[in-house]
Design a protein around this nucleic acid. Structure first.
Lengths: 236, 236
DNA sequence: CAGTGGTCTAGACCACTGG
DNA sequence: CAGTGGTCTAGACCACTGG
């Protein structure tokens, strides 16, 4: 345990760097001094300088781009659960998607439960990389009851899957129930999002039903915690 | 950058420990081997063993209690924005609160904006530690317009502040708008929550209005990311 | 006093990339 | 080829706590 009176050196260094960022003396996407340089300037070992930078990285205040260096991050983008594309577009950002995989699967128990599938009933699984201003932002992992959306995987759109559900199948989302938690990004997802394993991510697990209460989608989306924030409205 | 084919040693060790936890061979609150012991058993340096344990800690899967050791964590508790006490109680948990400070303040610009205070109008600021089953769970930091709640700070309850607003002032919350983001816990808050600085926390910034649309509360609550999850309902 | 996690050092080698 | 971050070593000293 560190003494509260004398802050640890890595905390002191992180604090100094943070102040430079807060005061905009270091602006978004500008290059920080290298870890070796910080170590030398502040008379600490490289491991200690690195710990300071890692702290700022975990706060989403800087990002690393080896082997180019470490850069100041942009502020987070906020939006409501279930309306990423429209809201960020209204905020002047450019959302896009890239298909990672689309398969018919035998659903796991949790997916089967969420979609209320009968035993043996197949599901479609679609994974997409969501980008914001051409930077990786989230991994979308969605499941659909194959029986209600035959041929869904043929001719998948670049844009909204909900639009496709409406146009091709007449399925209209009515209500979502989501759960937000903070997780650490595991290896494959980290690679896809250009992050390192262990970085914080926001997991959104979401079940969506149509007007008749039937499950039409189950999602396990993972957002970069350093880039995303969620807004929530609640009535009492 | 690590080779994808040969996972880093700390990732391998973290994976092994994680499997023991997933398979319930290590149950909540059971003691992990010490970092020195893990290092010796797995033929790595202590710094590498420590990095593996830190990864699990950042995932909320273990928690450290120096100098006793490192323990397996409990699963997260989920609840809706704005109804912590009632929901977790219904889930069989015991919520409580401890007053940290209650003061009349000159509001900062952001608080003044959120509460729509006139220049020079004071606000009340209440900070409370929220506990769940007697373990620190969140720091509640709430602001109220002093003019609408005279004497609020006298005789503060252990329980719900919203109940107090209703009973003493006839003020009934009607609608909240919240923003959830992941932050790194700064030093004072970390101390209050028995965490180390840099741990992930969920910041809930929330503005609540009454039936006439007037702001009655602004909150900046910080939840332990390893303990809390939020549920959200959305209609389309 | 033994053992824990927290911090720190002064090195090392690696893969990767841009000039 | 120089420089970056990523990983790793083999130590060290510290504060703290429980027996």
């Amino acid at each position: 345990m560190s003494k509260a009176e004398v802050p640890a050196r890595y905390l002191a260094l992180a604090g100094e760097l943070n102040e430079l960022i807060e005061r905009c003396e270091l602006t978004p996407h500008s290059l920080l001094p290298s870890e070796r340089e910080l170590a030398e300037r502040h008379h600490v070992s490289r491991m200690t300088a690195r710990k300071a930078v890692s702290l700022l990285e975990s706060e989403g205040k800087v990002y690393r781009r080896p082997p180019r260096g470490t850069f100041v991050a942009e502020p987070r983008v906020a939006f409501r659960v279930g309306s990423f594309s429209r809201e960020v577009h209204d905020q002047g950002h450019f959302p896009s998607a890239r298909l990672l995989s689309a398969r018919e699967i035998e659903p796991s128990p949790s997916v089967r439960g969420a979609l209320k599938l009968k035993p043996g009933e197949p599901a479609y699984h679609i994974r997409r990389l969501r980008l914001l201003d051409d930077e990786p932002f989230a991994i979308e992992s969605t499941y659909y009851p194959a029986s209600r959306t035959p041929g869904l995987l043929d001719d998948l759109p670049e844009g909204s899957l909900w639009d496709l559900l409406a146009q091709r199948y007449g399925i209209v989302p009515k209500h979502s129930r989501a759960r937000l938690s903070v997780v650490s990004v595991e290896e494959r997802t980290a690679r896809e999002l250009s992050l390192r394993p262990g970085t914080a991510g926001i997991l959104q697990e979401r079940r969506t039903v149509d007007g008749s209460g039937r499950a039409i989608e189950f999602a396990r989306d993972l957002y970069r915690a350093d880039r995303a924030a969620f807004t929530v409205e609640e009535d009492f």
